[in-house]
Design a protein around this nucleic acid. Sequence first.
DNA 1: TTGTAGGCGTTATCAC
DNA 2: GTGATAACGCCTACAA
Lengths: 347, 347
Amino acid sequence: MGVTIKDIARKLGVSTTTVSLVLNNKPSRISPETRQAVLRAAAELNYHPNQIAVSMVTRRTGTIGLLLPDISNLYFSSLAKVIESECSALGYNVLYGNTNDSVENDFKYLELFLLGRAVDAVILTPSYQLGEEERVRFRSLVESSGIPVVTVDRRMQQMEVPCVCVDQELGGYLATKHLLSLGHRRIGCITAQPNVSGSAERLRGYRRALEEAGVSFDQALVVAGNYHVESGIQALPILLGQGVTAIFAANDMMAIGVLRECRRFHLRVPEDLSVVGFDDIFLAEFLEPPLTTVYQPLDDIGREAVRQVAEMLHGETGGERIISFKPSLRIRGSTMRWAGAQETAGK
Amino acid sequence: MGVTIKDIARKLGVSTTTVSLVLNNKPSRISPETRQAVLRAAAELNYHPNQIAVSMVTRRTGTIGLLLPDISNLYFSSLAKVIESECSALGYNVLYGNTNDSVENDFKYLELFLLGRAVDAVILTPSYQLGEEERVRFRSLVESSGIPVVTVDRRMQQMEVPCVCVDQELGGYLATKHLLSLGHRRIGCITAQPNVSGSAERLRGYRRALEEAGVSFDQALVVAGNYHVESGIQALPILLGQGVTAIFAANDMMAIGVLRECRRFHLRVPEDLSVVGFDDIFLAEFLEPPLTTVYQPLDDIGREAVRQVAEMLHGETGGERIISFKPSLRIRGSTMRWAGAQETAGK
DNA sequence: TTGTAGGCGTTATCAC
DNA sequence: GTGATAACGCCTACAA
């Protein structure tokens, strides 16, 4: 069960060296005859190299670890699709882990993959910003293993690891500015936990837009969600209680929650409430109303993450570089001019 | 770079056997002192077994291959999440491949995973029913590798492989019967390619419901999609041209396409057109209107697929068993009694 | 209770 | 041109 080069060698009366040389197209000048013979025998016996054995000696697995917080979030599953496809094109397989937005799971998989030398590199979306202690743990993990690690979508502060993402702050700014330009003044914001990278930046963008427009920031208009639909649902009544006329949700899932809950409250979107999301998951345009949201160039991000990994695999050094793409606003049906805008129109 | 049991053995002046025995908790009675010493040394040196080396000798990789047609389809990403989580609980990693509904890719990954002995087992959703030639290829691939293969969500006809799925025919039947019970008589059906397993069965259920209700089957009301949103969009005008009052889409993605296109046509759902989907992806209830659809017990399916695999890994034999779960109808807002129903009410 | 030695399948280093 | 032989890191009879 399992033809080996030994079998081929024996059958042909040559050494395993010869077989290996031929099968790997090594530039050692084997006579055309033996060459053909080996090739034919390999085909006849239906030989296929045992990748484990190959990995054993070459010290590379041909596998890249991919750690994502939640594959059932359309944003991440689309990202996974791009990354897997890019990896596949480079001859790499993807070992996948769902971290459920838990730092413990981040570490669980990281240790599994890095310490076990099960992968040649890792692409991950870290769950939270690490505390000092965890930072040490992470750093020693990465350094001692010597395995390239690249972060995608979210940054790891103070870590010497390349990060591929979007300019989150700008995204938050664009979303909020759009609402402001429509005359909204009381704009709610649903963020994720403050120590999730990305979330804080999006909030910063929100604040900057407000300040620029001379609208004072009100902490009561900011509620922390968790990037899941449910937290959008829960946030809505709180924000309505604050009299908001528009909501910026830090991702599309939460925006979907808001949309959904609005119907339960018989609130029309966008007539009664404008809603902006973030990510532009591909279902966003199919919602009712089609969701105005901040587009992330997913393909670029995924492609670039793999490119970064590939570079490091080819000896390029890591280090804390940030490759940042520009997000852009996709205006659709979930936002409109605030009916009461005339009052403040003169501003 | 990489502490080995040799390092530990050397440091302690014992043999690698001793170290291995201790570290693997083997029932060979090592003296408590050496035992402790080994454990301590391993911790101090930060030892972690090289999984490749372990795999080399144990002949198991601790990895399960998962091949899915489209991870950006919410149904499959949710399934992947369940499967990964179950595998993880059993100590298995998941090597993931996106096949894009192409048989060629099915084989590409299957060969990569099976022939390279990169996985201990494979769970896959086959792209299409295989032709005779492909069937031979598949069978020899699976048999020669001796690696357990389990099919999920879709069957492979005439293949000696366990399949975990839902009673597709029943699902199609329930969906259609629901529409019939609401008075609809011209019911369109959007299927996938006829040779995609599951699709054909769902269509059969549709026919059975029609026959049972004494409504004659009309081929013109059946249009073939591809399980993507776009094909729902394309199918709608065709079906409207046939004067349908309701549509059964063979999955939720296509149903979403229908919903979306209805808005462009200023058609109200469900007042002007009832729509039923299939899968009950978790966004279904968040759509507008919330989608009536056929629920698949995703968790059960994923869990059972992994259980099947685990059994085969433990020596249970494979064979063509079908583990079928019952789907159920989730009635939500996208269906209602047909306004013209009274005409045929007496029927 | 512990050590020796062989082997897993492949690649790599030298000789010949 | 080709072939021994030694790794790679670990496990496991079998010996001692």
